[in-house]
Design a protein around this nucleic acid. Structure first.
Length: 927
RNA sequence: GGGCGAUUGGCUCAGUUGGUUAGAGCGCCACACUCACAUUGUGGAGGUCAGAGGUUCAAGUCCUCUAUCGCCCACCA
């Protein structure tokens, strides 16, 4: 019936078809079911700007395996999908797109711009969802959530208000990470440090009353009329309001308190003393720029210095920079250096590598920048989250990430959550203008006035500030209706950290979910979720914060297990990135090799949390495997007589004499099932995949199907080959969903889709180690005959006679019973079995374990060769025997090693001695 | 500066709590296409497990140090 079917598996003809079928039949849908155990994963929501890369492919392949596996195990399995609004990233993309029309977002205004972003989202925002479908992801798509859905926004607001009420949210003036390109504040996590090759500039700050002299000028005492400071960012000197030295520093001790003249600006600044200054660095004198460096800020606070902001939000210097007003920070650096040089104030320049924060969205070097931002106090939230992991309520796989997590949590800093962009959740903070007029004018500020702010103020007057999920009609203090909302939006992660419960319509939980379930029941049933699958990069951004949010707002952990997979890299170990041009596009791989191949290859090379080094050739393995499955299924179908295969396996196994071969493959299948279950329960995906691969290819196809080929129509063979195939397809399905469905649909079965089938149930009683051992012996014999033939250059098509001699009666009987198989698979004409070894002239003999194998010699010259080979083998065995004897004569070994090990070694030694005897006899017998 | 990971055949990697002669895929060599599959089959070559020391009856596996590569964290002006 299948002769017309191609001998090559063509994924293009099947994948989209079955995906559509699954979706149309609602097979991904999950709903609370009290009679079943819940299993739930929330997807790490990809950005709406995202396009599927290998990291996504790996991440989602793993999740899909888990979901499909648990679903087939009879658990109510929900994979909650959705996307993230990705504030800065999305705003950047849309800004770029309107720039093509020569527009800036300011030209459009806030509302119009947001409208454009929404349009963009409608058009492109679900690209990645379609791509996930290509991958086979079995998410409950009806539930797809977006972090800016209206209900989700309610959750964000409620959380903000709750934290405010608890006193965990505050506004403060701090030196934060500022991206001059995105023009927003960033959290510390969003400004990762990378090493850059910079310079250390040594600049002279003259003392007051001692006008700068030329380079060589020194007074008689040897002191110089200036202090030299070292800096990597010379342009910040324009904002200097002190120079600091260590009080213990002998070089400066008597100069402390003197006044310096800041070059170029001619501001008088003091030489102050503070322990924070490291004597060994640079000259031991630190220029202090309180508005542009976090350390200097601390110093500024401590010593009551002036805070002078010299920069516009876009990185150009401002009016405080005097002559340099309007210049870009890096241009200004060059000009300032020129000017200093001219005045003889630039002492020297050294190369200096330093690490600088970079914007994680646009990679611009961030500017430490004093500004007024909103923060979350993290310590109180972190404590229970540390506890949950310490006590093992949440487990990391691999465990080592636990330390990374704890280390971060224990040193957690307050979280800067306000962003000066437009796309995102606006802070639910409202201000009353009338109250403000009465109160301190500077209590509340919109962002635009940053540069002229009064930085001395760090707490705000709460009067006139209303924090509320709803826009207030009027001011609760003065009844004024002149109310406006804060311009800032929240950090994207301030919404993502609610993902495990806000996706269930928390907190309102009104109406029905798109799946037709009650959100309240959903949340109760599926929360805490089972496992989170993600990459190490976002442990801090997301994982840690979700744990904190879950414990704070749900009073329970958000997930029990965290599986951290590795990063996908190119073959040279570099991260895949567009700029490096080393991307392997998963969609291209799907197109070329198929989705199953992509999934299988990725999974089989991903060992626990190790980074993945990828090259395109790796996908051939997956493709070839799919093809193997295809052809094996095809072969079985071609030979299947559909009459009597749907018997109950257990009864059949009990009632019928299946024969060694069938008992063997069944035993092997259940051993593999057991192993794969074990691997999956411990998140060892690669081991599971490799176990499946080698079983199917090298045991089922290479041995089993070859063995039964000649008697394929027997009832036992029909039933068992069918049963093993269909069970194997079910077991493999989570890994390769498409081809297993395609094959499933072609074989006779009950049930519509393989997805709705149960995982094969482990039948321990069918696992039979003795049978497995016996068959291994048979395989070994076939292998050794094949090997001899090959070494003697006996042409493959030549049928020869062979004799096997061995003393064990049971083994002789086994070989006798398997004689037909052995002869066919090693191309023998006749196989004679005997107890006493004998060899005639013109015959070649070999020894393997307890057997002699005798084959007629064809050709010449090979005897000598074999004599040498046997000689080498004898040598090896001699040395092995020596080491074993040594081991067994060691009293400590006998005393301390477990008895099984000692016995095993003893048996092994005896076997080796037996073998040695045979080999020596053999060698002597050779001419 | 602190932490983590890696180092196993030509290449990419497995190797779970220490216990036979260290495995796989790719590549390589030889042979084999009317017989499910050449995206195949059969056979083969190829490794002192980065180096040094230690613990142990026993080390690729545990400990210490060293080297090389990579990653993460940190307020090194």
């Amino acid at each position: 019936m299948m002769n017309e079917v191609s001998s090559r598996y063509n994924p293009k003809e099947t994948e989209d078809k079955w995906y559509k079928f699954w979706e149309e039949n609602n097979l991904f849908s999950a709903r609370p079911n009290p009679s079943k155990k819940p299993f739930c994963i929330v997807i790490p929501p990809p950005n709406i700007t995202g396009i599927l890369h290998m990291g996504h492919a790996l991440n989602n392949a793993i999740q899909d395996i888990l979901i499909r596996y648990h679903r087939m195990k009879g658990e109510e399995s929900l994979w909650m999908p959705g996307t993230d609004h990705a504030g800065i990233a999305t705003q950047n993309v849309v800004e770029k797109s309107i720039a093509k029309d020569g527009l800036k977002r300011q030209d459009l205004g806030r509302d119009k711009f947001i409208e454009r972003v929404r349009e963009w989202k409608e058009k492109y925002g679900s690209t990645i969802i379609h791509q996930l479908k290509k991958l086979g992801a079995s998410c409950d798509w009806a539930r797809t959530r977006f972090t800016m859905d209206s209900e989700y926004s309610e959750a964000v607001k409620k959380v903000f208000v709750a934290l405010w009420d608890k006193g965990l949210i505050y506004q403060g003036d701090k030196v934060i990470n500022w991206c001059p390109r995105c023009q927003t504040a960033l959290s510390d996590e969003e400004a990762p440090h990378h090493d850059i090759e910079g310079k250390l500039y040594y600049i002279r700050y003259p003392f007051k009353g001692q006008p700068p002299k030329r380079d060589s000028d020194r007074d008689i005492s040897g002191t110089v009329p200036y202090v030299v400071v070292a800096t990597t960012r010379p342009e910040t000197m324009l904002g200097d309001t002190a120079v600091a030295v260590n009080p213990k520093d002998k070089r400066y001790k008597k100069l402390i308190g003197k006044t310096l003249i800041l070059p170029l600006v001619n501001r008088e600044i003091k030489l102050i003393a503070d322990n924070m200054v490291e004597m060994k660095f640079g000259t031991g004198a630190l220029k202090v720029t309180p508005a542009h460096d976090p350390n200097d800020y601390t110093l500024g606070k401590k010593h009551n210095l002036e805070f002078i902001n010299i920069m516009h939000p876009d990185g150009r210097l401002n009016e405080n920079a005097g002559d340099y007003n309007g210049m870009d920070r890096f241009k200004a650096r060059e000009v300032i250096l020129e000017d200093l040089k001219e005045k003889g104030l630039l002492e020297k320049i050294e190369s200096h590598s330093l690490s600088a924060g970079h914007c994680y969205r646009c990679h611009t070097i961030i500017e430490p920048y004093l500004s007024r931002q909103w923060f979350v106090k993290m310590k109180p939230l972190a404590e229970p989250a540390i506890e949950a992991v310490r006590k093992g309520k949440i487990k990391f796989y691999p465990k080592r990430w636990e330390k990374v997590y704890l280390n971060w949590m224990e040193n957690i800093q307050d979280w800067c959550i306000s962003r000066q962009i437009w796309w995102g959740h606006r802070l639910p903070i409202y201000y009353c203008r009338d109250c403000q007029k009465q109160a301190n004018e500077s209590a509340v500020h919109s962002r635009q006035s940053t540069e002229t702010m009064d930085y001395g103020l760090s707490t705000m007057d709460k009067k006139g500030v209303i924090v509320s999920t709803l826009k207030p009609e009027k001011c609760p203090h003065c009844d004024s209706t002149d109310i406006y909302q804060d311009e800032d939006v929240l950090d994207t992660w301030f919404s993502s950290w609610l993902w495990p419960f806000a996706t269930f319509y928390w907190p309102e939980m009104k109406g029905l979910s798109p799946s037709g379930t009650l959100p309240e029941l959903d949340l109760k049933y599926f929360y805490p979720t089972s496992v989170l699958v993600t990459a190490p990069e976002i442990i801090f951004f997301w994982v840690a914060r979700m744990i904190m949010a879950g414990l704070e707002f749900m009073k329970d952990i958000p997930f029990k297990d965290i599986y951290i997979h590795g990063t996908v890299r190119d073959i040279e170990g570099k991260k895949m990135s567009k700029s490096l041009g080393n991307i392997i596009d998963p969609l291209e791989i799907i197109n070329e090799y198929g989705s199953d191949a992509l999934r299988f290859s990725l999974i089989s090379i991903t060992s626990q949390g190790q980074d993945v080094y990828l090259s395109k050739e790796r996908f051939e393995q997956g493709r070839n495997f799919a093809n193997k499955i295809w052809n094996a299924s095809r072969f079985i179908l071609m030979n299947l007589e559909q009459s009597n295969i749907r018997v109950d396996l257990c009864a059949f196994y009990k009632d019928k004499d299946l024969g060694l071969v069938n008992r063997w493959i069944l035993s092997r299948f259940y051993s593999v099932l057991k192993e794969v279950n074990g691997h999956l329960d411990k998140y060892r995906f690669n081991e599971a995949a490799n176990t499946l691969y080698s079983f199917f290819w090298h045991e089922f196809c290479d041995w089993y199907l070859e063995l039964i080929k000649t008697d394929i129509k027997s009832e036992e063979n029909q039933v068992i080959m069918y049963k093993v195939l269909e069970k194997f397809l079910r077991l493999l399905h989570p890994f390769m969903p498409f081809i297993t469905e395609e094959a499933w649909q072609r074989i006779p079965h009950t049930g519509n889709s393989i997805m709705t089938q149960a995982m094969p149930h482990l039948q321990e009683n069918i696992i039979d180690e003795k049978t497995e051992k016996l068959m291994e012996g048979v395989f070994e014999l076939i292998n050794i005959i094949r090997n001899i033939r090959s070494e003697l250059d006996i042409p493959a098509q030549d049928s020869i006679d062979a004799k096997v001699f061995l003393s064990s009666k049971a083994k002789r009987a086994l070989i006798e019973s398997m004689s037909g198989h052995i002869r066919r698979l090693s191309r023998l004409n006749k196989l004679t079995i005997g107890a006493e070894y004998s060899r005639s002239e013109g015959e070649f003999a070999a020894v393997f374990k307890d057997m002699h194998i005798v084959i007629p010699l064809s050709g010449s010259g090979s005897v000598q060769e074999h004599k040498v080979k046997i000689g080498q083998k004898i040598e090896n065995i001699h040395s092995e025997i020596r080491s074993k004897e040594k081991m067994l004569s060691n009293a400590d070994f006998l005393k301390r090693a477990p008895k099984e090990i000692v016995d095993k070694e003893r048996d092994k030694l005896n076997e080796l001695k037996e073998l040695l005897k045979k080999l020596e006899a053999l060698k002597d017998g050779l001419r």
